[in-house]
């Protein structure tokens, strides 16, 4: 049986990789994909704890995280489409209308 710490360290590594993607990429679609990666790292933590504590609650929480992630992806992609129509660009650094 693989110890719990291994799952947690793997999940921390995937989360950190997702953070790198959100910070350094200059394409909104890839930023959204990195956020999905971070959500999945957290899901892995929930499932590992659910297995090691013998409780179903972790799996139920993962179910809800998936529903919220689906909603987030749909609305995020709709916003990206609408932004692309106005600016012809996917670079988040060009979106500084509120910058003073």
């Amino acid at each position: 049986m693989v110890p719990l710490n291994h799952y947690l360290i793997l999940s921390a590594a995937i989360f950190a990789i997702g953070v790198v993607g959100v910070v350094i990429r200059r394409n909104l679609i890839v930023v959204l994909m990195s956020i999905e990666l971070m959500l999945n790292a957290v899901n892995l933590t929930f499932i590992a704890f659910s297995r090691f504590l013998g409780s179903m609650e972790g799996q139920v929480v993962v179910f809800f995280v998936m529903a919220v992630a689906a909603a987030e992806a749909v609305v995020g992609l709709a916003i990206i489409i609408s932004v692309f129509r106005h600016r012809q660009s996917l670079d988040p650094q060009e979106m500084q209308l509120l910058k003073w």
Binding site: N5, A12, L53
Partner: peptide, 17 residues
Amino acid sequence: LAALVSHNEAPADPFAA
């Protein structure tokens, strides 16, 4: 995160599924 996680006392013997 790795420091936090590796110092934690994890349940080594999991619940028998």
